[in-house]
Nucleic acid binder design. Structure first.
Lengths: 224, 224
DNA sequence: ACAAATTTTTAGATTTGTCTAAATTTTAAT
DNA sequence: ATTAAAATTTAGACAAATCTAAAAATTTGT
């Protein structure tokens, strides 16, 4: 007898956070880590952990932490799917810039209508990645994590395509816009500076100097 | 010093209901009427009335009822604007049928992003009416109520165009679909039956028999 | 106009999600 | 291994939004 599972917005946010902190496998996520991520107090997390366990979303071991159950993972992926599809929608259909979408998607991801998100998916042509390069889970929870690496970890002379960002803050994304660094751009590492770990790169033909801070937040898919 | 006005979802629903019950002018809406409409208890309405008055959305007179302030009206129109624009979006862009949109729009109307709804408005080409024929308030709160009347009130031989429905229940809308009665259809009243108030009409060339129940829920814009 | 019926409000309780402060458990250090 | 530090939980409180039951005000009927 499957419970008519009513999930509150707050529960959804906890489930999503636990997933992002790596609670998908059997690895336990600490109360503190969740509290910090969600800017709330550990005691609140404990309370919610009990409720989520009660409802079957997580395994909860007192003083140890929580991990998502299969049902919890399924739920998390559904929320993330909605979040990322809405982000694509906002950018592709409504001309939002990639630094503006997160806040709105945080709201839209909680809209409850299977038909709605499936139609949005269809309207967008079943995109596989969101505007920041993160993979979009399919309806049945599968998604393709790209074989990518940080620009800061690329070897000298290697080439690739910019496919994602690690830091998705508006500040960082606006910086990238200002410097014409966009997903899809081709990149070649020309030189690496030992002293400050900064890079000389070639991007879309033009030469650029990139600080370590930037390079360690850009994902590249290596050629071949 | 304008208060940073945080409106909860519940507050928005009360404001919207009060508006729909006619609380836009200075006419007071009874606690009971609101409770009945919202399927809640009068005591809950009283509590909320106090809060809404505190926040400046309504004028509240103990034992008398509430009416919306100018600020309350502005807020109500903004919510209704969002609701109706989302309805158009669902029908026009995502192929929802007009009996499916209400439930989802009830959720979407609470999304807080001015840019989002303005872009949706733009994407849809600034529609003036929603899928049920109800007018969509503009950004600055103006809207055009059409000069329409119920089919049941039309005189013999008069002609017009179907422009709206009074009853927006899924049951009624599906009935209309089944009988090929749609907004935009031309209508002519051929005969009125005194006994049961039913009508013989001509719709898009074809003759139809329409019960009073149906005729009193269809809005017609008379020709000329 | 006055009693009865209705409506509305108040008082007190409940649920959800949060908090603080204190107590407990686990982890880390010597 | 014992103690100090850190993390976690518990207990008790609070605000929001609701409810029930009782009290108060208004309206209605005669």
């Amino acid at each position: 007898m499957k419970k008519l599972f009513f999930v509150t917005r707050s529960e959804e946010n906890y489930i999503k956070t636990i997933f992002h902190l790596g609670g998908n496998s059997s690895s336990l996520i600490a109360t503190n880590a969740i509290a910090e991520q969600m800017e709330t107090k550990p005691s609140s997390v404990t309370d919610m952990a009990k409720k989520l366990a009660e409802k079957g979303f997580v395994n909860y071991k007192r003083y140890q932490g929580v991990s998502l159950t299969d049902f919890g993972i399924k739920t998390a992926l559904s929320i993330i799917r909605k979040h990322r599809l809405w982000e694509v929608f906002l950018v592709e259909k409504l001309d939002f810039s990639w630094d503006e979408v997160h806040e709105v998607a945080e709201q839209l991801e909680h809209i409850k209508s299977e038909k709605l998100i499936d139609k949005i998916d269809e309207l967008l042509g079943n995109p596989k990645y969101d505007p920041h390069g993160d993979p979009i889970p399919s309806k049945d929870g599968k998604f393709m994590e790209r074989d990518k690496q940080l620009l800061s970890e690329m070897t000298l002379k290697s080439e690739g395509v910019c496919v994602g960002v690690k830091d998705t803050s508006a500040a960082f994304l606006k910086f990238l816009d200002k410097n014409s660094i966009a997903l899809g751009n081709t990149i070649k590492v020309l030189e690496k500076e030992d002293f400050d770990l900064s890079l000389h790169i070639q991007m879309e033909g033009k030469e650029l100097h990139i600080s370590h801070q930037i390079a360690s937040n850009l994902y590249i898919k290596k050629n071949d």
